[in-house]
């Protein structure tokens, strides 16, 4: 399987994603330059973390107009898998691939920490190798990660099982203390109505090796392999 990793000016997790895919997963990966119009036959698109366009205007607001995003949107519309991590989640929201938005952390601090997230739905192409209710240890590193949407949208996401990750404590209990950025309803990651676009603030690609303190992120990528290959 071939993963296409988009590099915007200011992306800084593209190499982390490349390393996770090629070294930890043993799959093919290519970098896709933001000015190109060619996904180079990629099966899965990753919008990586970073600070595309310096977060000018709003995080992700300018990146969504990059030429490659037209192709990414077409890929998503055709049901192709798209994984947006951190800045990639912000870009996906700005591009309308996912509902809602990511705002400044409630405590105004840039948070760089290993957090815990609870799996809310394991029946997706990104989480089928996890158990529902399982708690993962995954790093976050962001200043604008507070997920916000209207109450109607939040209710709809919950009713349709589209909230995939929530910040929780070690026992899987949701609390304000476990929520690093003040996200509505402790939401850390959501999926599109078609089930093929996942956005999350935590970095699964940085949790793919015991050497890095956690390999809880590996199964997210393996889930894609098992579902998309099958």
């Amino acid at each position: 399987m071939k993963f296409g990793i988009v590099t915007f000016p200011g992306s800084n997790c593209d190499y982390d994603a490349f390393h996770a895919i090629t070294e930890m997963l043993g799959e093919d990966a290519v970098y896709l330059w933001h000015k190109d119009h060619d996904l180079q036959g990629s099966d899965v698109i990753i919008l990586p973390g970073g600070f595309s366009y310096g977060d000018y205007l709003r995080p992700g607001a300018i990146a969504r107009f990059s030429p490659i995003m037209q192709e990414v949107a077409a890929h998503a519309k055709a049901g192709g898998p798209v994984l947006g991590v951190c800045n990639g989640f912000q870009i996906a929201c700005e591009a309308g691939l996912l509902p809602g938005a990511l705002m400044r952390n409630a405590n105004l601090q840039f948070v760089s920490a290993k957090v815990r997230v609870r799996i809310e739905n394991s029946d997706t192409m990104f989480t089928n190798l996890y158990e529902r209710g399982e708690v993962l240890r995954i790093p976050v590193a962001h200043g604008d990660g507070r997920y916000v949407a209207s109450a109607e949208v939040l209710d709809e996401l919950e009713a349709e099982g589209r909230v995939i990750f929530r910040y929780a404590d070690a026992n899987g209990t949701l609390s304000a203390d476990a929520n690093p950025n003040g996200s509505e309803r402790n939401i850390a990651g959501i999926i599109s109505d078609g089930g093929n676009v996942l956005g999350l603030m935590p970095h699964p690609e940085r949790a793919c090796s015991p050497l890095l303190g956690s390999n809880d992120g590996v199964r997210l990528f393996e889930s894609i392999l098992s579902r998309v290959a099958a």
């Binding site: 205007l57 709003r58 107009f65 949407a149």
Partner: peptide
């Protein structure tokens, strides 16, 4: 379309 985010 760009200058303001309609959600927030």
């Amino acid at each position: 379309k760009l200058l303001a985010n309609p959600v927030t």
